[in-house]
Simulated scan of single mutants.
Amino acid sequence: MNSWIISKIKYLVGIAFVGIFLWALLWTVVGVIKEPPAETAEHVMHKHPEKLHLASDGPFGKFDRRQLQRGFQVYKEVCSTCHSLNLLSFRNLKDLGYTDAEVKKIAKDWAIKQPVFDDKGGTWGERDNTPADRFPKVYYPGTGTPPDLSLITKARHDGAAYVHSLLTGYNQKPSAEAVKEFPEFAKTPDGMHFNPYFANLNIAMPPPLTQDGQVTYSDGTRATVDQMSQDVSAFLVWTAEPTLETRRQAGFAVLGFLLLATILAFGAYRVVWADVKH
C-alpha cells in the first residue's frame, strides 16, 4: 500500500512540474506577442546582400576563367596588401589559365616574400616565392591580422553576394527615418565606415574600390566599381572551392552509376523471381 501511494505521489509531482512548465511557456509566448522586443539599429538598417549571378552558380555552372583572371587582378592590385590567401598556392593559378612561366613570374614578383627560418625557429631573411609556396600571410604587428580571404565566401552567409554587396555598399547612408530613430548613427565614429551590408553597420575597413578604372584589365573589360566587385567575388568563390567543377562532375558520375546499378538490380530481381508465384 505504501509503495502504491508513493508511486501516485511521484506521478502527481511530475504532472505538476509539467503543468508549471507549460504555464510559464504559454505566458512567455503571450508576453512576446503583446510586447515584442524593441528593434535595434542593426535590425532596422542592416540590408541583405543583393542578388549576384555568376557563371559558377547552379549544379551545371562552370567557372568563367576570364572573369577569374580579372578577379585575381583586382585581388592582387587592391586586396593583397591587407588580406591573405594562405590556403592557396601560387601553382593553383594554373587552373585559371596561367602558364607555368606566368605563375613563376607572379610568385617571384609578389610584394610579400617568404620568410627564411634559422635552426632555432627565428627568421633571418627572406626569399622569393616559388609556385609551390602558398600566398604569404599579411601581418600588421600590434594591430592584429586582417581576415584571410581564402574561405570568405564559405564563411559568410550568401557568400559571393555578400562580398559584392559589401564592396559596393560604402556609398550608402542611413535614411533620415533611421537616423531619427537612432540618432547615434547620424555621425559615423572616427576610423569607421558605414556599410549597411556589414553586420554591425560600421566597419573598420575603408572602401577598397573607390573609383572606376582603379584596375586596368588586360582583356579590355571596362573596370567599373561594380564590375571589379563582381570579378573579385567570383575569384573568391574559386579560392574557397577550386575543385568545384571536378566535384560536380564526380557527383554526376556517381548518380549515373547508382541509377544504372538500380536498373540492373531491378532487372535481376525480375529474372530471379519471375517463376515464383505469390
Score class of each variant (00 low, 15 high):
1 M>S: 15
3 S>H: 09
10 K>M: 08
12 L>D: 00
13 V>P: 00
25 L>G: 11
26 L>S: 11
26 L>T: 13
29 V>C: 09
31 G>I: 00
32 V>N: 13
33 I>H: 06
33 I>L: 11
33 I>C: 04
36 P>T: 01
36 P>D: 03
42 E>W: 09
43 H>W: 10
46 H>A: 09
50 E>L: 11
59 P>Q: 11
59 P>G: 09
62 K>F: 11
69 Q>K: 15
74 V>A: 04
77 E>G: 06
79 C>Q: 09
80 S>A: 15
80 S>I: 03
82 C>M: 07
83 H>R: 01
85 L>D: 02
87 L>V: 05
88 L>T: 15
91 R>Q: 15
94 K>V: 03
94 K>C: 03
96 L>S: 09
97 G>S: 06
97 G>W: 06
104 K>T: 15
105 K>W: 12
107 A>L: 04
111 A>Q: 14
112 I>S: 05
112 I>D: 04
113 K>C: 06
121 G>K: 05
122 G>L: 12
122 G>P: 01
125 G>T: 08
127 R>G: 07
127 R>D: 06
131 P>W: 03
133 D>E: 08
136 P>R: 00
138 V>A: 07
139 Y>N: 09
140 Y>F: 15
140 Y>I: 14
143 T>W: 12
143 T>I: 08
145 T>H: 08
151 L>H: 09
153 T>I: 04
154 K>P: 03
154 K>A: 12
157 H>E: 14
159 G>M: 01
161 A>W: 00
163 V>I: 15
168 T>F: 01
174 P>M: 04
174 P>A: 10
176 A>V: 07
182 F>H: 03
183 P>N: 03
185 F>L: 06
186 A>W: 02
186 A>T: 02
187 K>Y: 04
192 M>D: 04
192 M>F: 14
194 F>L: 05
195 N>V: 08
195 N>D: 12
196 P>Y: 02
199 A>H: 07
202 N>Y: 06
204 A>F: 12
209 L>N: 03
210 T>P: 06
210 T>S: 13
210 T>V: 11
213 G>T: 00
216 T>G: 10
216 T>V: 11
217 Y>G: 08
218 S>K: 14
219 D>C: 05
221 T>Y: 07
223 A>C: 06
224 T>W: 04
225 V>R: 01
227 Q>Y: 08
229 S>K: 01
230 Q>A: 02
231 D>S: 13
233 S>R: 02
234 A>V: 02
236 L>M: 14
237 V>R: 05
239 T>R: 03
240 A>K: 00
241 E>L: 08
243 T>C: 05
243 T>A: 14
245 E>F: 00
247 R>T: 12
254 V>K: 15
255 L>G: 11
256 G>V: 09
258 L>F: 10
258 L>Y: 09
260 L>R: 07
263 I>M: 11
266 F>Y: 10
266 F>I: 10
269 Y>V: 05
269 Y>Q: 13
274 A>V: 08
274 A>S: 13
276 V>Y: 14
277 K>H: 10
277 K>P: 00
